[in-house]
Amino acid sequence: MKNEYSSAEALAADPAFIEWVQHPTPTNTAVWERWLVQHPDRSAELNLARQLVTMWQLSPINPPADAQATVWAAVQAQKNSPVYPVRQHRPAPTRRRRTGALATVVSAVLLLVGTVWYWQTQPVVEYAGADEPRTVTLPDGSTVVLNTGASVRFPRHWSADEDRTVWLVGKAQFSVTHQSNKQRFIVQTPDQLRVEVLGTVFTVDEQERQTRVVLNSGRVRLHMAGQPKPINMVPGELVDIPANTRQAIVRRRVEPAVYSAWTTRQFIFDNTTLGDMADLLTQDLGYRIEFADSTLRNRRMTIHLPTRDPAILLAAIAEANDLTVSTVTPNHIRISPKL
């Protein structure tokens, strides 16, 4: 970062500034806030530069839903087939050559058939990248929004008489299609929780310590290992299943939009405690948030932010509650009453 920027353009062209606008962290936010304190007359230009960076939104933002899978299937089918050099002038094949060519064609076809067969029996594993959630379409038309770092495994085809089972690691929101034969849809997590579904929207957040299921609409039944009785969830309900089976299962009514806001890259909190917000920043973004006074955790507020920007969220929390947010290390935040 340079100290002097002659104009909004100079700011908007600067890699350090772009990095801050696109990926704010407590550290770089502090750097730019300090810069603004030193240059109080430049705040209009800073705002303008921010708009220049954020307005550059290409459309379409995402490729068509099936493009990634279709192209991958073609790559898999082709990548190991032998390469023939392209010849400009091909001599007329002799009889022996023709037999040879025929054998080559036959073996290439066999190889292709084998590859396609092999490929069709392999399960599909889809991962979200490190930067943003990713939408995956399942063979039955259901969709899964995978949070950063999450993955889902499923077979390439489901026959009509088998359960639609997917295996989830991490956090995902499922929108499940309803099948005319009432075919079951099951989400299996590594800790032996099975979520059974009939056409519905819900989120499963599989974590080391606990798995959280939030139901937006429809009906979901939870089967837990070692628990004979399943839990029937109703829309608007949250259930936390601790990995340690001796701990209690927690059920409560929530605003489901709050828990699926990550799929649209927003922050939505309706009458939510600061403690719950801090937990979300901890689980999703790896923050460590410390409250100087533990009663602060129980304060409630409502906030809707159009961008999933932790720096703005923390600033808003501080502003609305008259608190001080201080940065201990980049990901370690301390929230205390204003002195």
């Binding site: 909004a8 062209a13 220049l52 307005m55 961008t307 703005i312 600033a315």
Partner: peptide
């Protein structure tokens, strides 16, 4: 950016929203 900035800095072009929280 210079061209775009000229357009954006016309009076009243933007509805500045979040900046109040940031600064």
């Amino acid at each position: 950016l210079e061209r775009l900035r000229k357009l954006l800095s016309q009076p009243g072009f933007w509805l500045l929203t979040l900046m109040g929280l940031m600064v």
